[in-house]
Computed example of a mutant assay.
Amino acid sequence: MLVFLVALLFWPLLEIVRGAIAGGSASVDTLEANVTLGLVIRTTIVVSLVTAVVTTVLAYLIALFAWLSGTATRIVIFGFVLLPFWTGVLVKNFALIELLRNDGVFNQLLLQLGLIDQPLRLLHTRIAVIIGMVHYTLPYAVFPIFAVMLPLDKRLDRAAASLGASVFARARHVLLPLTLSGILASALLAFIISVGFFITPVLLGGPADQMISNTIEYYQKELVDFETASLLALGVSLVVTVLVILYQRIPTENQHG
């Protein structure tokens, strides 16, 4: 088992480190001369943050509905949550292309309902990229929140309601503090996954929506500059490693207040 892990994990990482060192200052100069690198990094951060926020909000609502539901309804909910796991990422993206293109299902539905006069431009936009990334990361974000909700006593919510607390007040002062650790875990996990997206920006986004993984692929495949690609990949790996360490340090027990 140890040999298997070394072969599939540590050996490629060592090759990346070796390539980054071999490039030396020349690779650093190449990255500094790339005027679009800053834009790509900002795009990666912004898209990943938006994806993490939207994913966490949707995951919280799904987890809350599952927590309030009975066993049979909960099984159905998690069946739909787990359904994307059974579909490859390419299949998901091509399905979204069919939904979001100008003559796709979504635009045709809006046209038939009379809500729009002409098709909306959804495909090859940042919105399409975020939709695709949220669709992929949502299952990963539901379960950390639900795991924190599961041991909570539902009588706490009913007690707050009996004392006159509104729905918003109960959510803010009772449920939200008790599930804060799950929210943080889901948001951080969604962000970590989003940083490494590659195929979704290619298929659903435009030239301005390409992310850091696409830039690494450009150096490696188009320019055949393996050293610069390794240096950039090493930087991304270090950032993700720090985020994973932060994720592991989030308390697993309920947050009280």
Score class of each variant (00 low, 15 high):
residue 182 G to Q: 06
residue 193 I to H: 12
residue 208 A to G: 14
residue 234 L to N: 05
residue 159 A to V: 15
residue 128 A to M: 00
residue 97 I to M: 13
residue 29 D to I: 10
residue 168 F to W: 15
residue 197 F to D: 03
residue 147 A to E: 07
residue 3 V to Y: 08
residue 107 N to E: 05
residue 185 A to T: 15
residue 104 G to M: 03
residue 116 I to C: 02
residue 153 D to C: 04
residue 53 V to C: 02
residue 112 Q to V: 00
residue 8 L to T: 15
residue 180 L to P: 01
residue 66 A to W: 08
residue 138 L to W: 00
residue 248 Q to T: 09
residue 168 F to T: 14
residue 98 E to T: 05
residue 195 V to H: 10
residue 189 L to N: 03
residue 5 L to C: 12
residue 49 L to F: 13
residue 178 L to V: 13
residue 229 A to D: 08
residue 53 V to R: 01
residue 70 G to D: 11
residue 139 P to L: 04
residue 86 W to V: 06
residue 21 I to R: 08
residue 137 T to E: 01
residue 211 M to P: 08
residue 183 I to E: 01
residue 251 P to N: 13
residue 229 A to G: 11
residue 204 L to I: 03
residue 57 V to N: 02
residue 10 F to S: 12
residue 57 V to W: 01
residue 62 I to H: 00
residue 164 G to M: 10
residue 46 V to H: 02
residue 120 L to D: 03
residue 225 D to N: 13
residue 144 P to K: 09
residue 77 I to W: 00
residue 224 V to C: 08
residue 246 L to G: 07
residue 239 V to R: 02
residue 253 E to T: 10
residue 147 A to V: 11
residue 18 R to E: 14
residue 231 L to T: 10
residue 210 Q to L: 15
residue 131 I to G: 01
residue 225 D to W: 02
residue 128 A to K: 01
residue 151 P to V: 13
residue 135 H to L: 01
residue 75 I to M: 05
residue 144 P to N: 09
residue 134 V to N: 01
residue 73 T to C: 01
residue 76 V to R: 00
residue 65 F to I: 08
residue 86 W to L: 12
residue 123 L to P: 03
residue 127 I to V: 11
residue 12 P to Y: 10
residue 83 L to I: 02
residue 256 H to M: 09
residue 221 K to H: 11
residue 82 L to C: 05
residue 68 L to R: 15
residue 84 P to E: 02
residue 9 L to Q: 11
residue 148 V to M: 05
residue 230 S to H: 06
residue 16 I to V: 15
residue 12 P to R: 06
residue 190 A to P: 07
residue 118 Q to T: 11
residue 126 R to T: 12
residue 228 T to W: 02
residue 158 R to L: 14
residue 88 G to P: 07
residue 166 S to A: 13
residue 196 G to I: 04
residue 88 G to T: 08
residue 136 Y to W: 02
residue 162 S to V: 11
residue 257 G to D: 07
residue 11 W to K: 09
residue 16 I to Y: 04
residue 146 F to G: 03
residue 102 N to T: 07
residue 92 K to A: 00
residue 119 P to R: 03
residue 76 V to P: 00
residue 110 L to V: 04
residue 19 G to Y: 11
residue 143 F to I: 14
residue 97 I to H: 03
residue 231 L to E: 09
residue 101 R to M: 09
residue 235 G to Q: 02
residue 207 P to M: 08
